[in-house]
Design a protein around this nucleic acid. Structure first.
Lengths: 121, 121
DNA sequence: ACAGGTTCTTCACAAGCTCGTCACGACTCA
DNA sequence: TGAGTCGTGACGAGCTTGTGAAGAACCTGT
């Protein structure tokens, strides 16, 4: 079954995290992360732009495929869900960083950096 | 291969400091500096005029977009906030220099430059 | 179609952050 | 030394983000 490799298969690596959008899955240190479709797509879009600050409305457009209505908190809610699952799979790491007033940024960073004033890029 | 082409994104370099106004972020040796919008804009306007002494009222006009009222200390306060974050990210460097009676000047300089007026080395 | 289990969306409230401003003390220059 | 300039810590208002919960929508197997 796994004999045929698709050449166009995208693989995104962010620290210890591996994301395979075309396979509909993500891995953390070999283990498979169980994510819903929305969660995976949000993670993917963030991962495709590692270390860049992504505004909510742009993320929404990329993931939901339509314009975000003012006041829609969906992105925040899914960021929360991702954070919980990532924390569970990789305690000791932090991935989704909030940039107040701007949006979110994905980047692998050791957790105990309590300072959070600057981060590894 | 998922390279995202970005149209002429401004990048300002000042010593070990890299400022990307369009990305809403600044980097210090690869690490992302977490700045608020005011802090980033003030840093940007200073950086666009590296090594030039900028009067407070002009900085205020550039960053806040309106005339500065006499006695307004906002610029001073935000210079302070920037100094703290820059010092934390890049100890051993000094960036924002006070010119008594004139204003501020941005320039990357190694610390313990005792010659400098107005700071406790 | 039905039951059982997931996922999605939306709310409401809690928690956290930024901004502008003050007050007071330290400092500079004449 | 005096007058004016700058550094710095603190605070409240207002806005942004975090978080848990509840019901709607959806999916799967029978």
């Amino acid at each position: 079954m796994s004999a045929i490799a698709r050449p166009s298969s995208e693989v995104i690596e962010v620290g210890p995290l591996q994301i395979l959008p075309d396979e509909h899955l993500a891995r953390a240190q070999g283990r498979v992360l169980v994510l819903s479709i929305r969660e995976l797509r949000l993670l993917t879009e963030l991962a495709r732009r590692v270390d860049r600050i992504m505004p909510r409305d742009e993320l929404f457009r990329l993931v939901w495929g339509r314009e975000m209505r003012a006041g829609d908190r969906s992105v925040d809610v899914y960021v929360r869900k991702l954070r919980v699952k990532l924390e569970e799979a990789l305690p000791g790491w932090r991935f989704i960083h909030t940039h107040f007033g701007f949006g979110y940024r994905l980047a692998a960073e050791p957790a105990h950096n309590v300072n959070e004033r600057f981060t590894t890029g």
